[in-house]
Design a protein around this nucleic acid. Structure first.
Lengths: 147, 147
DNA sequence: TATTGTTATACTCTATAACTATA
DNA sequence: TATAGTTATAGAGTATAACAATA
């Protein structure tokens, strides 16, 4: 049974469609990397450590919009799997500098390939001309809305 | 301490910014309706029942992208608070027809006002010319990505 | 046999608060 | 006193599976 549901006001509710688009994109990405045993939170963490070697957990948390305590189990897992190394800073012994191991770098390359695939799938929804503009709007929303 | 974090590849990762924009929009909406004791899941449910009187739970779940079992506790709460009425269908006694009570309708009107405010806040991030196009892209992503 | 809705249950993700150790 | 990171814990939000009632 396929019932037509009137969205009514929701037809134009940006927040509602933002959520559905995000969920769809998320689900598609999960399916894409389904063969690789890694979660999306792990993915972002791995990519950002690769891009910012020596970054600490608090800074990393701010970048992905999560509390530092939320990152602890993710990092525990990545370290245990030999993908990330925690090195205590000599200048400030409270901090750990995070870096990718060789294996972590290899995993990052593999995941980056999946991510590129995923971007291609998104490109089927947004013309190349519009994509940059689209992402710019998303960034503006993320930056401005909280105030 | 404000560290600059290199996003690197992430700079262009649509999915990443989609998530951050969705979270920012969600947080802003929560703050807006903060005075009203209602959650976002409840909000969508209330709006869609108002727009589709007599809708059943399975159909409603499909519209919001949730399993029917996820809606049961939400509906229990809305019914207990006198906002929604469950009426067993006479044609098919397995189904309940969902409608808003008078109080539910009043709540819907109040929430719709908040939602309109929220859309105005979003309009500060997307020009009126672009907004319709932006939402169209979001819908396309939600429709196409899962395949 | 299939479907609607409920229940029991468990999992993921996340934050808060209290803690240790350093500064 | 303040900060980096960990631990314990709790709360959303969600899905899966088994179930009862009905089709």
């Amino acid at each position: 049974m396929v019932d037509a549901v009137r969205l009514g006001w929701f037809e134009f509710a940006t927040g509602f469609h933002l959520r559905k688009a995000q969920e769809a994109s998320f689900a598609a990405f999960k399916r894409l990397v389904g063969g690789i045993d890694i979660r999306v939170g792990h993915f972002a963490t791995l990519m950002l450590i690769g891009e910012n070697p020596g970054i600490n957990q608090t800074t990393l948390g701010r970048a992905v919009g999560r509390d530092k305590s939320s990152l602890t189990p993710i990092l525990d897992d990545l370290v245990e799997r030999g993908l990330v190394a925690r090195k205590r800073s000599v200048q400030d012994r409270r901090r750990y500098g995070l870096t990718l191991t060789e294996e972590g770098e290899a995993m990052r390359a593999t995941l980056a390939a999946s991510a590129t695939e995923h971007e291609k799938a998104l490109a089927a929804c947004v013309s190349p001309d519009d994509l940059a503009h689209f992402v710019r709007i998303l960034k503006r929303i993320a930056r401005i809305m909280p105030d």
